[in-house]
């Protein structure tokens, strides 16, 4: 039983100097009620994957290959109007900066009522009741009064709560949350993460949580997909991937994060940087930085292979499977 199935999704940007491939052959599944974390460094393609799912890729970018299935039906080839109905009603979105996600000249209530009435057949007064109810559920004090105030009258954390209410108010089955806490302070971040988790458990919505922060993933997600240079390279249960990462990149990434209570003389580091879009190496994109590189890695691109522990795209594991 899957809610969302992404198969071989490839997004390309044609440019004068040739076609740039932002994400390549991305395969993902999300089960109902599940929180899937997507991590990776800037440019790994995690936000692009989220944008593709919600149908918000800016031209000239386009989905070149693959398909996206929501509840078994394709949503990647829908027209503008059809996709607009899917967005909000079936897929909600939460973006990084709560100030730019809200319309500054409309009251918070107007924005909620508009979203609710667009997707649900409700009278204005019923929609208003529901808007107030959602503000209460996301923890806004005195929602009957705050519903008629403007976004600038809210603090950063409160604004992000409003954005969460906006994303959830049409009762979508899937939420794409792209760096929802990056603009917030740590103590507020913790509150927002807890709220997002609680509401999704209550409403049964699934979440794709895009972030660069492994700590946020650890505390929020059920499963995690690690991306590198436009591809998913490892997928597994959060506890497995964090404690026993298998792909050398994931292992290097986990080791390079400083931890409270540990103070090594030298922090393990991965040398180099992620290749740019136009300079991805042949074979496995990680091979020039990989401490366990083999001859085959520079030649052949490893596929994402599933086994009992999860999925990993690395020749170290594909060979073991073959023998």
């Amino acid at each position: 039983m899957t809610l969302l199935k992404v198969e071989n999704l490839t997004v390309e940007f044609p440019s004068r100097r040739g076609t740039l491939t932002a994400i390549e052959d991305v395969c993902l599944t999300v089960a109902p009620g599940e929180i899937l974390g997507m991590v990776g460094e800037s440019g790994a393609g995690k936000s692009m994957t989220g944008a593709a799912i919600i149908g918000l890729i800016e031209p000239p970018g386009r989905i070149a290959r693959g398909q996206i299935l929501l509840n078994g039906s394709r949503i990647d080839n829908l027209g503008r109007e059809d996709m607009r109905r899917v967005r909000g009603r079936q897929i909600g979105a939460i973006f990084q900066d709560p100030l730019t996600s809200l319309n500054p000249v409309l009251t918070v209530g107007e924005q909620l009522i508009e979203t609710i009435q667009t997707h649900l057949k409700l009278s204005r007064s019923a929609a208003r009741e529901r808007a107030i109810d959602w503000l209460r559920r996301v923890g806004i004090p005195a929602p009957e009064k705050r519903v008629d105030t403007y976004p600038h009258q809210y603090s950063g954390g409160m604004r992000q709560r409003v954005v969460i209410a906006l994303a959830l108010c049409a009762e979508p089955r899937l939420i794409i949350a792209d760096e929802p806490t990056t603009a917030l302070d740590v103590s507020v971040q913790a509150q927002i993460i807890a709220l997002l988790r609680k509401l999704c458990k209550e409403t049964g919505a699934s979440v794709i949580l895009v972030t660069h922060d492994m700590g946020v993933i650890a505390e929020t997600a059920d499963r995690v997909a690690v991306m590198y240079a436009g591809r998913v390279i490892e997928v597994g249960a959060v506890a497995d991937v964090l404690r026993a990462p298998r792909h050398p990149y994931t292992a290097g990434l986990m080791a390079s994060i400083p931890r409270i209570g540990e103070k090594p003389d030298i922090l393990p580091q991965i040398d180099g940087a992620m290749p740019r879009l136009n300079a991805r190496p042949e074979g496995c994109a990680f091979n020039p930085r990989c401490p366990k590189r083999m001859e085959v890695c520079a030649r052949l691109r490893p596929d994402l292979v599933a086994d009992a522990q999860g999925e990993v795209a690395c020749h170290l594991f594909s060979k073991e499977l073959a023998t």
Partner: peptide, 22 residues
């Protein structure tokens, strides 16, 4: 601060979140 910083060794911890903002 120590209680709220997301930590990779704390998988899916559930605890009371501090209220309020600066």
């Amino acid at each position: 601060l120590l209680d709220t910083v997301p930590d990779i060794s704390m998988v899916n911890r559930d605890m009371d979140r501090p209220a309020g903002e600066v």
